[in-house]
Computed example of a mutant assay.
Amino acid sequence: MQVTSAIDIPGTPVVHSGRSWARAAKDIRDGIAARELWGHLGWQDIKQRYRRSVIGPLWITMSMGVTAAGLGFLYSQLFGIEVTTFLPYLTVGFVVWGFIIGCLSEGSDTFMANEGLIKHLPAPLTVYALRTVWRQTLMLAHNLLVYVVVLALFFTSLTTAGYTLSPGGAPQPGLNWSVLMAIPAFALLALNGGWVTLLFGIISTRYRDIPQVINALTQLLFYITPIVWPVDILTTKLGPGDWKHLVLELNPLYHFIQILRAPLIGTTQSWHHWAVVGAITVVGWGFALLAMRNYRSRVSYWV
């Protein structure tokens, strides 16, 4: 039974009723169509976070810049790597990592954080998921300013064909027109952010331990993902075909980072990364639609 009494009786949860594929798909379509709503809410999140701050959202950029510069110079000395090529590698890795982990951690809290709106605003659940993804996109856009500065400083090194990320590493083609591949790469990344936010958001409203599990695993995932260390180090130290390479390939975050980082810094683009990300996208959205079909109507009560 569809309940729309939230408009008539304040405090009554808005029930997104109906357990069917059609209604789940309609919720997603209507949510995407309400771009003015989730776009405005996402902007307001950024403004509210830096309310009464002198430089506002530029703190996002400054924080990323300081972190990338500090760790870039440190790890380049530890690994004996040229900072002119390693710093761009690390910077883009941090930028993409921030977006992915933001969608995971904040996505799992997305419906709980919007409890008041869900109970009083008759809007598709997808609106709140897109609000989170849009907020992460805005933060990524701010962080990309650091990439632009780093690119300007080390443009010559990145455009030199045959440069390496580590001593003895594979020669890279250098920055060229393939940088345009970053556009579909980010579109694919944002598309995955949508299903991650929907799926984990629904699960987390029922099982409140999920966000804590994700936060606990974040640090481990960071160190086993090639962000502050180049993949070439595994090849030069362990040799090709080692089982540790298989562990790396089984890390889905590695593939997501690589499809966007490779074109932005002019490294070799392997199409198997795109294939893995594409497969995860299809499977992920399948699970998200299943969760929307079965549990969409219960979210307003679970929150």
Rank of each mutant, 00 (worst) to 15 (best):
F99K: 12
L140Q: 02
A129Q: 10
L104Y: 11
L138H: 14
E115F: 04
G116M: 07
I101G: 14
L138P: 10
N114C: 10
Q136N: 15
A129D: 08
T132W: 02
L121K: 08
K119V: 00
F111K: 04
T132G: 03
G93D: 00
I101D: 12
W134P: 05
V95C: 11
V146M: 08
V146E: 03
W134D: 09
L125I: 00
L117Q: 12
L121V: 12
M112D: 13
V127M: 09
W134S: 11
L144D: 06
I101Q: 15
A141K: 00
V146W: 03
V127N: 06
A141E: 01
Y128I: 03
V146F: 06
Y128F: 15
F99P: 08
S105T: 15
V146A: 08
V127D: 02
V146S: 07
L130R: 00
Q136R: 15
V95Q: 09
G102D: 13
V96F: 08
I101C: 13
G102A: 14
H120S: 14
M112T: 12
V95D: 05
M139W: 08
V148Q: 05
V92S: 03
V92K: 03
G102P: 12
L130F: 01
L140M: 03
G116N: 08
A129N: 10
F111L: 09
W97N: 13
T132P: 04
N143H: 08
M139R: 12
V133E: 04
L117F: 12
F99H: 14
K119Q: 01
N114Y: 06
I101A: 15
N143E: 09
V133I: 12
L144A: 08
G116S: 10
H142R: 05
K119F: 02
H142D: 04
M139Q: 12
E106F: 10
L145I: 04
H142K: 03
L125G: 03
T126E: 01
A123W: 10
T137L: 13
L125E: 01
I118T: 00
Q136S: 14
V127C: 10
M139D: 04
Q136D: 14
G98L: 00
I100S: 11
L104R: 02
G102R: 13
L140C: 04
